[in-house]
Nucleic acid binder design. Structure first.
Lengths: 342, 342
DNA sequence: TTGAAAGCGCTAACAC
DNA sequence: GTGTTAGCGCTTTCAA
């Protein structure tokens, strides 16, 4: 049970050539079944562990799919990674993860680090990169997938949706509920591209309804937490006490806002309607349940995986795969539709 | 801007040997400053991206630290990874993550996959492994760290705390509040070792107080979500309507339980005290705020990283580093101490 | 189905 | 501070 047992050692012990050992460790390679079994037994007894680093160099294939996400502590991105990872692992591919803290400079560094590992594809969140980051992606010579967004000028493939357009549906719903004085919390810092897009989409939708959209509450740099949502709600009430409804950049901030209403004795949705984004579990459990948008985070990951697998077989042209989000109406904007809990 | 630009190409273009290019890409290596600058400029212009796979093989160092966690979608583990990753990245080390779905068989596969990549250290969650998984760890020839637990027979290093002992503090607190009929939700499936330990610790603490501990509500296989917490609470009320307090295996299930109380008009903490575990953000935001245990998830990761860095310099003996968790008393068990929100 | 020779793109080790 | 030589542990390629 020592490290530095090499294929050569296994070969010698099994009485075959290294090449036969190498073949025994690959599913598809042609080795007599008995030979393979014997080799694997010997390898296990010797405590041999296959050395990918050598195989990677010689075969020029690492089995890595590189991924950058803004934050590891985010249930939406975690679901995407889980979906991606589950589909890829079936094909012997492994996710190599890096996070960017919602910062394009850090993303650039992450991209460079990841590309040095010679991944077979690279997935990035969103379409905003530094000039050099973009150049690195363009020159990578592997499939590049921008996810969770619809970039105006994609580097290569895209799997996502329009964060801005999604807000139209949300505003339509609130207007249909009879609200006119509607506020937005978050999305004020450019770093969170998708949050900023949602905010822009909100403003556009309000304008389309002929409504004023001056009720924009800043929640600071991402990630916007529950606490920031609560603080923003307090500020909103102070600044615009007659607000009827508020859309938050995510379910986390929306839940924070909801709790602030509870602390102040404001009834939701009667005194204040609240909506979020992301279909986090909390949205379906809290009291009242939260109106939100389901972006199908996991499916985004699965779709990215499928795209990568297909691209490996037949390198086709650029793909644009939309994953249409879905409005989920719940108790926080509609008394009739609360059905939360156990 | 093509892949397959190699160090040789950069060397030729810069009019130096490959070895000098190699040195230019390492911080510590001795190269004239002008030479280095010139080389890096040429490399950038040619679109050269350093090939780690080759460097890894030759130098027998990959810069990887392998980590297995039960689930990627868990704020506690995510915080540990973030702490670990942040400290390691300063030293040029990169986390290579795999998840196990709370399943030792899947952990075994993950460990093998990870070891093939020749990491320089491996971190696993908890001390329960398959026999072969344990053998793989023991023979890995690199520092092994078991985290988030205090295994009875550690493989190598340990950074964690006793999940069972932590429950004593919690039960003491509830008893001090005057409760006697106390229930526990979750931790019934062995797969979640730490959850099961908390449940055992709860039972031991109840026994120590001379209290009955028959109020154990099963919540099924991990991860225990908010929804399962809510369902378990409903069952608890049905089975033992006179229950005064309930300890949940995590803050997520505790929050679910809390919402179930709200839906039924039970006042928390007056009619039912509720406590969780993990110090998730929600515990400090929900109404009332949740009594919980802060395991200092991020610090666990940082401490693991420090241990690894020290072990690389001077391979010392086995380390056991305890990270003492802290009881956080809040509104869900103590009316006096609610201070939640913005 | 199996084996022998060559080499993947870097860096250790040594020379100057 | 820079160059030369050899080789990391596998797999590709070709031959049997």
């Amino acid at each position: 049970m020592q490290r530095s047992v090499k294929m050569k050692d296994v070969a010698r012990a099994a009485g075959v050539s290294v090449m036969t050992v190498s073949r025994a460790f690959r599913k598809d390679a042609s080795v007599r079944q008995e030979t393979r079994d014997a080799i694997l037994k010997v390898a296990e007894d010797l405590g041999y562990v296959f050395d990918s680093t050598a195989a990677n160099l010689r075969s020029q294939r690492t089995g890595f799919v590189a991924v950058t996400i803004p934050s590891i502590n985010n249930a939406n991105f975690a679901d995407t990674i889980a979906g991606l990872s589950d589909v890829l692992s079936g094909e012997g591919l492994q996710v190599l993860l890096a996070y960017t803290n919602y910062d394009v400079a850090q993303e650039e560094r992450a991209i460079e680090q990841l590309l040095r590992r010679r991944p077979e594809a690279i997935v990035v969140t969103g379409g905003r990169h530094t000039a050099r980051g973009r150049r690195l992606l363009e020159g990578a010579g592997i499939p590049v997938i921008e996810a969770w967004d619809l970039p105006a000028e994609p580097v290569d493939h895209v799997v996502g949706f329009s964060n801005a357009a999604t807000m139209e549906t949300m505003v339509d719903h609130l207007v249909a509920q009879g609200h006119e004085r509607i506020a937005f919390i978050g999305g004020d810092v450019d770093a969170d591209t998708r949050g900023a897009d949602r905010r822009r989409g909100f403003m556009a939708a309000m304008a389309a309804h002929g409504l004023a959209c001056a009720r924009l509450i800043e929640a600071g740099p991402p990630p916007i937490s529950m606490r920031e949502g609560a603080r923003a709600m307090a500020r909103l009430i102070a600044l615009h006490p007659d607000t009827q409804a508020v859309v938050c950049v995510s379910d986390l901030s929306a839940f924070g806002a909801l709790t602030e209403c509870q602390r102040r004795g404001l009834r939701v949705p009667q005194d204040m309607a609240v909506a979020g984004f992301g279909a986090y579990e909390i949205a379906s459990i809290c009291v009242p349940t939260l109106t939100t948008v389901n972006p199908f985070s996991r499916r985004i990951g699965e779709e990215i995986a499928r795209l990568i697998l297909e691209a490996r077989k037949t390198p086709a042209g650029r793909q644009l795969r939309r994953i249409a989000p879905e409005l989920v109406v719940a108790g926080s904007t509609d008394q009739q539709s609360d059905a939360g809990g156990g």
